[in-house]
Design a protein around this nucleic acid. Structure first.
Length: 598
RNA sequence: GGGCGCGUAGCCUAGCCUGGAUAGGGCACCGGGUUCCUAACCCGGCGGUCGAGGGUUCAAAUCCCUCCGCGCCCGCCA
């Protein structure tokens, strides 16, 4: 493709034509020295926005090695050999680097045209037919959602959004574990009339209950007391055990599903406040009911390393699958014939593989051994496909240790949200006494949830996180509200300039200030940020990118007038509109509300 | 004991996949900025050589090895 053929309008990534042009120019310049290097290779080494004043940088070291010439000398020679190009203003050697300065007017036009043409879809990649499944959250429905699990939900939801934007056909799934002993305990107690509840459990609950409280809170209340009660009441233990067995055999009482569903509904209401929802819910017990667990067990019995134990239990000798030595004995079926979590999870994954080309599971680090055991069992039954895992570190409390419901260290998501809303409300009231009450409430809710989501995504999943209220609810600096504020500020400018709607005629030549050019470069980075986050699952990259946009917009805002400028006004208005669109799209990816005013 | 993850300024964090130009941000602290489009903002200053050591390389925060520290896991629980 020659440079002249490149058109600026239909691109998805504004940097693309400039990178292509620079790669072409490099290849041509290199050929002058009889250096034949594939354009793709050169293009891969180019780094957009890495050079001085945001130039495209090319480190010539690698090429210099092939050419057996000093890098600095080669860079100088290459820069001198770059022919004039409509996309590239100049190629300047600087040490071992060749810096390609983009043609600024063409760059401004390409960026703005792309943003305006794509609108809400700016940042998205080309659609691919590949169907992918992102399973995340999947918290046991036994009580309120606590913030130890919110990291899973936010990482998973953001990853799903990023992959969707990158063009993949994403389906999110919540795996509902209705088969555990915990779930059975809840069903056990609520199946009895209140009058028949053991005294200690009734006492623990009564007096605490609030009329009309959420179902997850309500149904989950007896849980800690049941836990304590079972320790020294064998009869009750036996009742629960009998219930567990009924559930495992595939015929749970009707109340079981209803209770689980009710608690799940309450949990989902909390998540909905964070804009987190799911395409599908997969119930663990369904795999028992439809016979797929049975089929998995049969295949495992016939597996190459299956072993039957004296008492009738079945296991896989997983030696050779790279598991820790002590974990090589993987029991997949109990002596009484019932299945275990791993074998049911094999059934679940076979179901996923049947529908999706790509399967991702977001799991807490406490599941890391499971994440290595599951592939071993899949291999044993001859299944070649594997899920990809995104494993995040748990959120701990400052006193040390994980968040636990029993120890009282758990903070429920609802509590966190309520506290955040309260703080946000105070902030809004202090700044905006002109607003109506319902507007204050709406803004406070958005600020609160935005702060929490940002606080969690901004950190790489594999980093351990200590929960501190002051940090989680920060509204300044690198925070969700800072992004929302910047968006509101851009909105306000457009509103006052009566430019809420396009079109936005501009003159590229007018956007020549360093702050304007810097802003254009940042805006141009959204498509690659999306692609990177989707591919690598480093969702924190979106958070970092959104901050970069807001940050540079604020610098521009303080440095230059928009509405009060002269001939530059339409062009600057266009730049603000493009910023607002880009920042808005990034906020959408992060699940943070866009606020027109705050 | 074994396995996995983490270790960047007083605190939090990006960068590590795909090694490359003086390691980006934020909080806190100090000093400035509001007759001007939202000060949840902006400008300046202070502060790090990327846990320690070794190796590979023209080049290492980034790759490899060893060690130290912290977290998690090692159930016929999920």
């Amino acid at each position: 493709m020659s440079s002249e053929d490149r058109s600026s309008s239909p691109v998805l990534d504004p940097w693309a034509p400039f990178l292509d042009a620079a790669a072409d120019a490099l290849r041509a310049a290199a050929e002058a020295f009889s250096l034949r290097v594939p354009v793709g290779e050169l293009r891969a080494q180019l780094r957009a926005q890495d050079g001085p004043d945001g130039a495209i940088a090319f480190p010539s070291h690698r090429l210099a090695q092939g050419a057996r010439r000093p890098p600095n000398e080669l860079a100088t020679a290459l820069a001198a050999g770059v022919r004039p190009d409509p996309w590239i203003r100049a190629a300047v050697a600087s040490g071992a680097y060749v810096n390609f300065q983009v043609e600024p007017e063409r760059f401004a036009a390409t960026v703005l045209d792309t943003v305006f043409a794509r609108g809400a879809r700016y940042g998205e990649g080309a659609p691919t037919p590949e169907r992918v499944c992102v399973e995340h959250t999947s918290a046991n429905p036994t009580g309120p959602f606590h913030i130890g699990r919110v990291r899973n939900a936010i990482i998973g939801d953001t990853l799903a959004r990023a992959r969707r934007a990158a063009g993949r056909a994403v389906t999110t799934q919540y795996y509902v574990d209705d088969m555990g002993r915990q779930a059975a305990m809840i069903t056990w107690i609520w199946s009895k009339p209140r009058a028949e509840w053991p005294e200690p459990i009734r006492q623990a609950v009564e007096g605490e209950e609030v009329p009309g409280e959420k179902p997850d809170r309500h149904r989950g209340r007896p849980y800690p007391a049941i836990s304590a009660y079972l320790k020294d009441h064998e009869d009750a233990r036996n009742e629960v055990a009998a219930l567990v067995r009924e559930i495992e055999l595939g015929h749970p009482p009707a109340a079981h599903r209803e209770l689980t569903q009710a608690i799940l509904t309450g949990m989902l209401a909390s998540l909905a406040r964070l804009k987190i929802s799911f395409d599908e819910f997969v119930w663990e017990s369904d795999f028992l009911r439809d016979g797929s667990v049975e089929r998995v067990l049969e295949r495992l019995h016939a597996a190459p390393h299956a072993v039957r134990e004296a008492n009738g239990a079945w296991a896989i000798d997983a030696t050779g699958y790279g598991l820790p030595k002590e974990s090589n004995h993987v029991v997949f079926q109990r002596a009484d014939g019932t299945s275990l979590y791993v074998s049911r999870d094999v059934a679940y994954h076979l179901a996923k593989f049947a529908r999706f080309a790509d399967v991702v599971d977001v799991l807490g680090q406490d599941h890391q051994l499971h994440a290595r055991t599951l592939p071993a069992l899949l291999a044993e039954i001859g299944e070649a496909r594997r899920p990809a895992f995104v494993i995040y570190q748990d959120i701990t409390v400052p006193e040390g240790g994980r968040m636990s419901t029993r120890g009282g260290s758990a903070v429920w998501l609802d509590q966190l949200l309520d506290e955040a809303v309260e703080r946000a409300r105070r902030e809004v009231v202090a700044r905006r006494e002109d607003l109506a009450t319902e507007d204050i409430e709406r803004i406070a809710e958005s600020v609160a949830t935005g702060a929490i989501r940002y606080h969690v995504v901004r950190v790489a999943p594999e980093k351990p996180v200590v929960f501190r209220w002051e940090e989680a609810l920060s509204f300044e600096g690198r925070s969700g509200p800072f992004l929302q504020y910047s968006y509101a500020r851009a909105s306000s400018v457009l509103r006052k300039g009566e430019a809420d709607q396009g079109p936005y005629p501009y003159e590229a030549a007018r956007l020549s200030d360093p702050e304007e050019r810097a802003l254009l470069r940042v805006i141009a980075g959204l498509p690659s940020a999306v692609e990177y986050a989707a591919r690598s699952a480093h969702v924190q990259a979106i958070a970092g990118y959104a901050h970069d946009v807001a940050d540079q917009f604020n610098r521009f805002y303080h440095a230059l007038p928009v509405l009060k400028s002269g001939a530059e006004r339409p062009s600057r208005v266009a730049l603000v509109a493009a910023t607002r669109q880009t920042l808005g799209n990034a906020l959408e990816l992060l699940g943070i509300d866009r606020l027109e005013t705050m």
